[in-house]
Design a protein around this nucleic acid. Structure first.
Lengths: 194, 194
DNA sequence: AAAATAAGTCAACATGACTGACATAAACGA
DNA sequence: TCGTTTATGTCAGTCATGTTGACTTATTTT
């Protein structure tokens, strides 16, 4: 995977200066807020790409991928989660989940047991091994977020939280907020930015 | 795709209340900032999922997918982009790009021409058709973002921008900022939240 | 007892990414 | 001038993760 080199972006700039004359039909100062929106969209794309890439090496070393991470994460956050709950949170099919879940169970990261009130259900729990892995996978991600929140400034946390919450579709917003509010806490020491 | 029903989340809550006794080794008030970080991570996951889902129906109707959208978007933002530039921005292989790009070219959304300074290069331009499509695909996404920025409050824009910029890995940050700063503006009317 | 439900499995397919190899045209540098 | 390097394109195969459809078993509900 090659680096972006300065040459290529500089070339992009000078090339743009020469070629955009025919495309701009309004002066640059015009659409500042539109530019902000597109900029935000692009930043979100790049930000998320880096965020989800953090655990990849660890995952790959275990023969796992991002789907495994997601499953493990939410089971760890909500021990006792039913399969149907997980399907609903992740918005994937049971076939898709089944493949990944089976691997996590077979390899000892997740345990399952039949429900007591309803024996059809399968309740999912992280094993100690699973909790340790979930912790290891999320740590770099949380470091990234903590760093970014620091950059957001004194009241930035709230703004970012409001932004992200509102980015979630209105029909899901309350449910997502509820899910997040009731997730099991980490046992790790409190992380502080270095 | 079934809805999350209130029953299932309430069951989750009461089940947690009964089952977490054995897992919590510290009172809930303890890890507030860790909980914030994990909450942010989860919100980012859900937010991004909704954000990238916005154009899916339109894309699917054309027999396209998200990869097509990404390619079209960046070509539209940077007319005259070289293939190598695109590879670098998207961080994918040329084989991966080739498949999608060929379809966009074949179907008239992107035009390409050899460079003048270096005839080996292929410079990519959106056609009128491509620009219209790029506009159509991104509009709901920008609406989502504008809405979310409004929720972020008076100075929220800056906090969110700083957050997202810092979420991008430090080695890429300046380049991403530069790329965004030099993107071609939209020609659409300014969007205002309803 | 019949119908509905939770989960599990089989199978095939799609999207979008990867690796490796090879080819052609163009540019570069000795 | 010529050998080397570079930009792009293509072929081929593989993989991760998602989808659809169908079917099964055990359990719960009506």
């Amino acid at each position: 995977m090659t680096d972006i080199n300065d040459h290529s972006l500089s070339a992009l700039k000078s090339r743009r200066a020469n070629r955009d004359r025919g495309f701009d039909d309004e002066p640059r100062v015009k659409a500042a807020s539109d530019s902000d929106l597109i900029g935000m969209a692009e930043m979100l794309f790049f930000a998320y790409r880096d965020f989800i890439s953090d655990p990849d090496t660890d995952l790959s070393a275990l023969g796992f991928g991002r789907a495994h991470h997601r499953v493990l994460h939410f089971v760890n956050r909500h021990p006792g989660l039913r399969v149907a709950d997980l399907l609903d949170i992740l918005k994937i099919t049971k076939q898709s989940l089944g493949r990944v879940l089976k691997q996590l169970i077979d390899q000892g990261y997740i345990a399952q047991e039949a429900g007591q009130a309803d024996r059809r259900e399968r309740l999912l729990y992280p094993t100690e091994r699973g909790r340790a892995l979930a912790e290891r996978l999320i740590t770099p991600q949380l470091e990234r977020i903590a760093r970014a929140l620091q950059a957001a400034g004194a009241n930035g946390d709230q703004a970012v939280r409001d932004f992200l919450q509102t980015m979630v579709g209105s029909s899901e917003r309350a449910r997502v907020a509820d899910l997040i509010a009731h997730g099991r806490e980490r046992n790790a020491k409190r992380w502080t930015p270095s």
